[in-house]
């Protein structure tokens, strides 16, 4: 076991899979010699060579097309989109093409592609770096969307993503890259895609979240415990498809729920979670399911992140509303 940050765990997962499977290819803008703008691919080109880990021209759409073409030749591409705000350039390759390939070819072709991309606020990035756009890709049939919140899960989920024979969008929250260390096994292991994790058990209210907001939920839960409120915190880990069973089981126990996301209210995937709960557990609810989200504006100018991004205080407030409904 080693103490790792999330970024180290991610590098470790790619190293593991580059070693395990010669078809794994890692490429993108500055991922080669430079080791990535966040050092996520540090040392990989030295270890595995330029044939396996390589730079591309600066064109996201081209990177998407490259991945699709390489997949037809039996490779297992792990492309990087430098920041997920740049996904608009490659929406067709992701949602219009790779997500549909198995279906459109009736299974003749499939796309074992893992698109890695950083996102997320709180680190004062310039425009269109931090935007939470998981809601866009979560709406595309044919994709799975994974968002880890801890180093341990990042490694296990990324190995699962790379081994998956269908496209996976793997979103890495920038604020979580180096914010804490955790014990991460050096050997290979997997964390199942599509399975949520109960990060904290509780009996009064269920907090459902993902990404950096998981940690805000945990902080809020700790604070609320002092006031005698026992919150259960669910980390979705995969936002498409969502783990309905874990959510419903928890809501049936607590009878109250709040869904927490960093994305704007009209974006993200919280509305989907609310719908599933009301379709499947409405008779178990003591109060409506409320959402904690960012306001429906364009992502904040960096100096306004603090007042704009949802935080643990917003969560406590919303839980109080639900408890006193």
């Amino acid at each position: 076991m080693a103490q790792m940050t999330m970024i180290q765990a991610i590098t470790d997962a790619m190293r593991t899979e580059l070693k395990n499977d010669e078809n794994v290819l890692v490429f993108g803008e500055d991922v080669g010699k430079n080791g990535g703008v966040f050092r996520a691919t540090e040392g990989l080109q030295d270890e595995f060579g330029e044939d396996r880990v390589f730079d591309t021209p600066l064109a996201e759409s081209g990177i998407g097309g490259l991945s699709i073409g390489l997949a037809t030749q039996g490779f297992r591409p792990v492309p990087e989109i430098q920041f997920f705000g740049f996904v608009y350039e490659v929406m067709d390759s992701i949602s219009g093409q790779m997500a549909r390939m198995r279906y459109r070819s009736g299974g003749r072709w499939h796309m074992p592609i893992t698109v890695r991309s950083p996102f997320g606020g709180g680190v004062h990035t310039p425009e269109l770096h931090a935007d939470s756009l998981e809601g866009l890709v979560a709406q595309q049939p044919g994709l799975k969307v994974v968002i880890p919140s801890t180093p341990y899960e990042a490694k296990g989920l990324l190995i699962s993503a790379i081994r998956d024979n269908d496209p996976v969008i793997f979103l890495e929250h920038m604020k979580l890259y180096r914010s804490f260390r955790e014990e991460v096994p050096e050997e290979e292991y997997t964390v199942e895609i599509g399975k949520a994790d109960v990060k904290r058990e509780g009996t009064d209210v269920t907090l459902i979240s993902y990404g950096a907001m998981v940690h805000s939920c945990l902080k809020a839960a700790e604070e609320m415990e002092k006031d005698g409120i026992s919150a259960e915190v669910i980390d979705l880990r995969t936002v498409s498809p969502i783990d309905i069973d874990t959510i419903i089981e928890s809501v049936k126990k607590t009878n109250r729920a709040v869904v927490v996301q960093e994305a704007q209210k009209q974006a993200g995937i919280a509305a989907n979670v609310v719908s599933e709960i009301q379709e499947r557990a409405i008779l178990h609810l003591e109060a409506p399911v409320l959402r904690v989200t960012a306001p429906d504006t364009v992502y904040a100018f960096s100096d306004a992140e603090e007042v704009w991004l949802p935080n643990h205080k917003d969560i406590v407030e919303k839980v109080n509303t639900v408890m006193n409904f």
Binding site: G65, L66, Q73, G96, S105
Partner: peptide, 23 residues
Amino acid sequence: LSPQIIIGAQYVQTAGVALGMKK
């Protein structure tokens, strides 16, 4: 691949197929 409806998409994909063949 089957006929591509999104004009241009087949071009970026071709670069990938060709790179795969080269590798």
